[in-house]
Design a protein around this nucleic acid. Structure first.
Lengths: 335, 335
DNA sequence: CTGAAAGCGCTTACAG
DNA sequence: CTGAAAGCGCTTACAG
């Protein structure tokens, strides 16, 4: 009664069926080595007909290549980062699939590389993509020791690491410039965890613009490590009395909190103070007024990372550092 | 100069080194078959010493088992679901790793099962876990045709499918009962996509409580398919003039929007109207007043799903349907 | 208790 | 242009 159970063919089955050697079949399928057009066609016809799919495991073993890439996603991130991660992930998966690779997922805090370690030690992957990095990330030395092909999504000062990142610094500089052109002279910039490199890049971009515009750094107030609601609220309260033209938020989590707090305090945006965010998240859409922000292309980031890794795996050259573009979106909050 | 490059041992290497047969080494490591305590100890000692790790690929090929599970994550979900997905994913990865399995990720819209198809056809996975299901999900027939071990995170009316889900119906019933006990008689319930089974479960739970409390269904207003800001705003506007005791939000995305809209309209919670959410997301924390909500344990959901899949893979029995618990959290929004 | 052999399903030099 | 053979690194009946 198992009429409908399709037979799973192996190379051997096909070879026998067609009366040729299995190495001939292998060559026909892989396209490697020379073969007469006739036999090739005959074999390929049958292969298509019977729906043959090579056993990836056997191929892997014979070629010493898994066609899997490991993707390490930080496990302790906030909701607001999530859009970023998902888009990246999407990009990675897309490109991987297009190149016949699959993606093995591993969660890892920066402190716990166990998952990744397993993947590598079990030889289940050909290379690794890791997302996000702390200023001092243990993943870099780890990867170097393991000597696995590696691409980082994020930044590092290590020149030998292949990395792909949003061009945070330039983007933030441009956004800041625009705000300054709009008349801002005294700003407050609110940021998150100081241990994240991204915090530094954004701050640098901000100061680049200040410097170029001749605004004194001392006139700008910087508050970092704003990692929860109350910290943000306190920060807002502390600057609300200051003569501030614009509150610059390093990301949407902060911006969201800022907007709520300002609203609660009866401070009107942009009338009393302008606001911008250095990252444009779906969550900002809901706000009134709409908030000026920088939009990065995280999908592209993931795709680029994966393309680079595959190049490395193929032994091709690839630039060590790539910065991905952005769009500045001015909305009512800075009008 | 490659002193520090560790030699990667194979079974054969170890066998030669120790002057035994590689099948003996294999048995010592796997624990299968009988072996004298002496040789076992000798082999195990050396294995630990030289840091031998079996080649997972070769094992897979010999055992016809990949020790990989495929995890299908919907690719088109909103930010608010993301916490759910991430926690589930975390749970799956944890249990998988603990059982020596790895997780191959594939994104799939319900309409595009290509990624999953690849994984299966390439025989890279032993089983599949899929998250979330539409009322009519093409994944069920697909999986049945492919005959791959499968666990669904979500609900289905198909009794043959092994599934794990939050007990949405019971939880929503209990939450609704509490609201009713608090005095609510006329409620508005706001929900998302009607094509998601979860929408129906929650609505059923809501009505269960109404029925038991003797509240007429006609007195409760149901608005579904609220998938973006403006739809939610419009819905709020349309009910704001009604005599409503409580606005019941089926999830946090909606609740968030509702709160903002009420705030903008000068409607005070809980003074003018109470609000609750049927899902407790981190995003709700930021609200003033804090919102009563149901908290599900998505981490547990993922863990349970993975445990069940592994049982299936081991040929053990497992119940077809499991509902995971919840906690009702009453906060100020219903005071 | 241990070993020799065959097998998993491929690939890839190497002959012919 | 095609085939026979060895090999990838394991496992697993089967002998001894």
């Amino acid at each position: 009664m198992n009429e409908n159970e399709k037979k799973v063919y192996t190379l051997n089955d096909i070879a026998k069926e067609l009366g040729v050697n299995k190495s001939t079949v292998s060559k026909a399928i892989s396209g490697k080595g020379s073969l007469s057009a006739g036999t090739r066609a005959k074999i390929l016809d049958f292969v298509n007909e019977c729906g043959y799919r090579p056993n990836a495991l056997a191929q892997s073993l014979a070629q010493n290549k898994t066609y899997n890439i490991g993707l390490m996603v930080p496990d302790g991130t906030g909701v607001f980062d999530v859009d970023f991660f998902r888009n990246c992930l999407h990009g990675v998966c897309n490109v991987a699939a297009a190149n016949n690779y699959d993606v093995l997922l591993t969660l890892g805090t920066e402190s716990s590389l166990d998952g990744l370690s397993r993947l590598i030690d079990n030889r289940k992957i050909d290379g690794v993509i890791a997302m996000r990095s702390l200023v001092k990330s243990p993943i870099i030395p780890f990867i170097k020791e393991k000597q696995v092909p590696f691409v980082l999504i994020g930044s590092t000062s290590d020149k030998k690491i292949v990395s792909v990142d949003n061009d945070n610094r330039t983007a933030c500089e441009e956004m800041t410039r625009r705000i300054i052109e709009g008349g801002a002279k005294r700003m407050v910039i609110l940021g998150g965890d100081e241990n994240h490199l991204v915090t530094h890049s954004r701050l640098n971009g901000f100061f680049d613009a200040c410097d170029k515009a001749g605004l004194a750094r001392e006139d700008q107030k910087v508050i970092l490590n704003l990692c929860d609601n109350s910290a943000v609220s306190d920060a807002v309260d502390s600057v609300i009395s200051l003569q501030t033209d614009c509150i610059v938020c390093m990301d949407d989590y902060i911006c969201n909190m800022v907007m709520m707090r300002l609203h609660d305090c009866g401070v009107s945006v942009p009338h009393d103070v302008k606001t911008v965010s250095f990252y444009d998240n779906v969550l900002l859409e809901g706000h009134l007024p709409p908030i000026s922000a920088i939009r990065f292309d995280s999908l592209n980031l993931g795709e680029t990372a994966c393309r680079k890794l595959i190049k490395i795996l193929n032994g091709e050259n690839t630039r060590n550092k790539v910065l991905s573009g952005y769009k500045i979106i001015m909305r009512e909050s800075t009008k």
